[in-house]
Computed example of a mutant assay.
Amino acid sequence: MRCTNPISGFSLRIIPILLPLLLALLVLPAAAMSLKDAMDSLGEAKTSGLVGEQADGYLGVVRDEGQAAAIARLINEARRAEYLRLAKENNIDLSDVEALAGKKAIERTPAGQYVRLPSGEWLRK
């Protein structure tokens, strides 16, 4: 008489389902980008034409390749926190801080990098 263990059969059937999920959980933290990583990558992302400056004081994604969206998101989160601090500290509207920061960032953008026009079109300076 043959004895079968229903639990071991279940275990073998679930391995192909759980293994990719477990591997994904191990890889995701390593693939996540930190603010430091984003700041370190910003110059190259701008030079490569992946991200550019906008009049609202934030980065925009020119070409959604590689880590462009993550870089823009992380830098923009940090910029917004700083803009909020400055607005509160100086008792002015956040939108005024954003506009001034955007104006300065566009003025300082070197030739060859992208800025977003008020029409929404990206222009290489």
Rank of each mutant, 00 (worst) to 15 (best):
I71G: 04
A70M: 11
R124Q: 15
P110M: 02
Y58K: 04
L35D: 01
Y58F: 14
R13A: 15
A55Q: 15
L22D: 04
K104L: 11
K36A: 14
L59Y: 07
G49K: 03
R2K: 15
L50K: 12
Q54T: 13
A32W: 09
V115S: 03
L23D: 01
D96G: 07
E77I: 15
L19S: 10
A55F: 11
P6F: 03
E98F: 00
I75S: 03
R116N: 01
I75W: 03
I92W: 05
G43P: 06
S48Y: 11
A78E: 14
P110T: 03
E89M: 09
S95W: 05
S48F: 11
A45P: 08
I92P: 10
I17T: 12
T4H: 13
K125W: 02
R116L: 02
L42Y: 10
S34G: 08
V97D: 01
S8Q: 14
G66E: 04
A68P: 05
R79V: 09
A38L: 05
N91M: 08
I106E: 03
R63D: 08
Q67R: 14
G57F: 00
L35K: 06
L26N: 06
E77M: 15
I92F: 10
L18Y: 10
L94D: 00
G57E: 00
R13D: 12
P29K: 01
Q113A: 06
N5T: 08
A101K: 00
K125T: 01
R73K: 15
R13E: 14
M33H: 07
I106N: 02
I92Y: 07
I106M: 10
P20A: 00
A78T: 09
P20R: 00
Q113G: 07
E82R: 11
A45I: 07
I7G: 04
L25V: 13
E121H: 12
P16Y: 00
P118F: 01
R116F: 03
L84Q: 15
N90R: 13
D64W: 10
E121D: 15
A87I: 06
K103Q: 14
V61S: 01
L42C: 08
E82W: 04
D56E: 10
N91K: 14
A101H: 01
D40F: 11
R85E: 09
I71D: 01
V62P: 07
E89R: 14
L19H: 05
A68D: 02
K104P: 04
D40V: 09
K104E: 08
V27K: 07
K36G: 12
D93Y: 07
E98K: 00
D96F: 05
S48I: 11
